[in-house]
Design a protein around this nucleic acid. Sequence first.
DNA 1: CGTTGACCATACGTCACCGTATGGATGGAG
DNA 2: CTCCATCCATACGGTGACGTATGGTCAACG
Lengths: 182, 182
Amino acid sequence: MAVTRTPRSRWIDEGLRALAAGGPDAVRIEALARALGVTKGGFYWHFDDRGALLEEMLDTWERLLVDDVIAGVESKGGDARARLRRLFALASSSRELLRIDLAVRDWARREPKVADRLRRADNRRLEYMRSLFGAFCPDEADVEARGMIAMALYVGSPFMAADHGTRSRADVLALAMQRLLA
Amino acid sequence: MAVTRTPRSRWIDEGLRALAAGGPDAVRIEALARALGVTKGGFYWHFDDRGALLEEMLDTWERLLVDDVIAGVESKGGDARARLRRLFALASSSRELLRIDLAVRDWARREPKVADRLRRADNRRLEYMRSLFGAFCPDEADVEARGMIAMALYVGSPFMAADHGTRSRADVLALAMQRLLA
DNA sequence: CGTTGACCATACGTCACCGTATGGATGGAG
DNA sequence: CTCCATCCATACGGTGACGTATGGTCAACG
């Protein structure tokens, strides 16, 4: 077995970086090759075509942004509120991961196949949040509203450009979070 | 004065349609020309280049999505809660306008000049919401949190793909809205 | 009825990208 | 030392987009 110089994973990582920075249209294999310091020669050895790379990028996205996050929250204990706080902290921890998630969301608005994947992923995330809010929220409709608000804050706030006077965005998010955990 | 067959405004409208459907990369003047049933010959009579069209599209976006919406809410009277309800209803009324707004938001994530415009627009919208929430919310921090949540719901929910069991997305949004007006 | 202003068609050169083909290079296994 | 799996460089043909150049067309105006 020869040494892998530029294995599949490096193409996928670089593809996710390009996706985060410029959306799916920015995932151009000749540009990725330049970024990796090679030519596209090797790309077509690993992947059938550009679409195959995009598919594997989505696999990686789901693993990083859903499986790993939930596992990370569950790994340490704590009650439901503590887990929710950790979920929010973890979900916003990596700027780069967040940008990937946002790019996938916008992508899903135009590509039905991506929308299907996002639906599966979001249903898993929301179901997890329901289980946490349900632990201290008796009213089922209230649980649903809180889950919706929590997710909308996570998804929506990076798409907002408003200022908040003396407060930082993080301050205001903390205020909103406080309302949700009351 | 000759009759205008395909005036500037038709290019701008078609450009906004393309933007809503596929993001700024989908605003290609040859494609717009095909959609309008002409060739790109006339485009370069109206506009210097593609960038000039994008600029004017952003002007139109701000007028439609900020000025017109606020004016529409203010035109009829009512107390602050009624206006907030009307603001939410109006902001979600047109599928097409909403899609344009979302596309601009994603665009702003990569283009600093677009981000500046979005910041101005979002500050105007949030300031307007502050004035409405402030009418029945004494605590200033609470006003800020509610404004943040309201805007995140508007911006974030179209980027979410989760299901809500027997409830529709509109049902859950109404539940969340109810919490905000309490 | 001729001119002019507003718009359109066509052809062109350039560029970036896709996917293919083909011939290396390189390092570990045997 | 040889072979083979793995990866890379290069060249190619094709496509679609940008912006330019140039010559129509057609209604309105005087």
